[in-house]
Simulated scan of single mutants.
Amino acid sequence: MFRSRSKDEQAAAAKVTASQPQQPRNPQAPKGRPTPKRSDAQSQRRTRAQTPTNRKDAVKAQREARRADMARQREALANGDERYLPVRDKGPVRRFARDYVDARWCVAEFFLPVAVVILVLTMIRVPQIQSIALLLWLVIIVLIVLDSIMIWFRLGKLLQQRFPKENLKGARAYAVMRTLQMRRLRLPKPQVKRGQRP
């Protein structure tokens, strides 16, 4: 049952296959798959040639690729290049929300400097000055909340008008969170001047 074929049987089988002529392939017949473009074939050859042979080289290549991507992203955040921005900053809706916030004065962007002043005032051991500092805390928080609510509703209305068929989910929250950063520290960097309509 499991015996190997004898040499005579193997020789006979080889003669039968050799006696049958090879059928040439019809050049007009389809080969069962599409011909790749030259650029695709060349890029595949290059990637196969550059594929690391061991795990250590693969990890190193992956780390280098990630570092290059991060450098490209940092550059895009600095100059506003839409192609390499992170996913949360991409798209015309997010760009409009950024420009809307950057074009106006926001109370929230002055929170950190005012907080430092209030902190200094609370360290002074004079009851009247400390009560003024507490009142300033209350005033700045109320102004930030009111300003954020105005931005939320106005921006929502503008987005509905400009981008009726786009996905607007998260755009208003994105804009409100941007107001909490000082203008110089915002990323992506502001692309519009104050007062310039987006």
Rank of each mutant, 00 (worst) to 15 (best):
112 L>K: 08
90 K>Q: 15
63 R>L: 12
51 T>Y: 10
145 V>T: 06
98 R>Q: 11
124 I>Y: 04
117 V>L: 12
89 D>P: 14
121 L>T: 09
82 E>G: 05
133 A>G: 15
80 G>M: 07
48 R>A: 14
73 Q>T: 12
29 A>C: 05
146 L>E: 01
173 A>S: 07
83 R>I: 10
99 D>W: 14
54 N>F: 03
126 V>I: 08
123 M>K: 15
145 V>H: 07
97 A>S: 14
133 A>D: 13
165 K>H: 03
82 E>Y: 04
148 S>E: 07
136 L>D: 04
146 L>R: 02
65 A>F: 10
41 A>D: 05
112 L>Q: 09
119 L>E: 15
60 K>A: 09
82 E>T: 05
132 I>T: 08
104 R>G: 09
88 R>S: 14
162 R>M: 08
70 M>V: 15
106 C>Q: 01
168 L>I: 08
169 K>A: 02
170 G>T: 01
125 R>Q: 12
112 L>I: 10
163 F>G: 02
68 A>Q: 15
171 A>Q: 03
94 R>N: 09
109 E>W: 02
64 E>A: 14
129 I>C: 04
44 Q>C: 07
106 C>T: 08
154 R>C: 13
152 W>T: 06
124 I>T: 12
109 E>C: 05
80 G>S: 08
34 P>V: 02
155 L>W: 05
32 G>C: 07
154 R>Q: 13
88 R>C: 11
62 Q>D: 12
125 R>Y: 08
139 V>Q: 05
152 W>K: 03
119 L>A: 15
50 Q>V: 04
153 F>L: 09
171 A>I: 04
151 I>R: 03
105 W>G: 06
63 R>M: 11
114 V>T: 13
137 W>R: 08
73 Q>N: 07
77 L>D: 03
36 P>H: 00
110 F>T: 00
54 N>R: 09
121 L>D: 12
70 M>S: 14
58 A>L: 14
111 F>C: 00
55 R>M: 09
115 A>S: 15
168 L>C: 08
174 Y>Q: 00
137 W>T: 06
73 Q>K: 10
174 Y>N: 01
93 V>D: 02
98 R>S: 05
57 D>P: 11
52 P>W: 06
89 D>R: 14
113 P>H: 05
69 D>K: 12
141 I>C: 13
81 D>V: 12
86 P>K: 09
162 R>S: 06
38 R>D: 06
137 W>K: 09
68 A>E: 15
136 L>T: 06
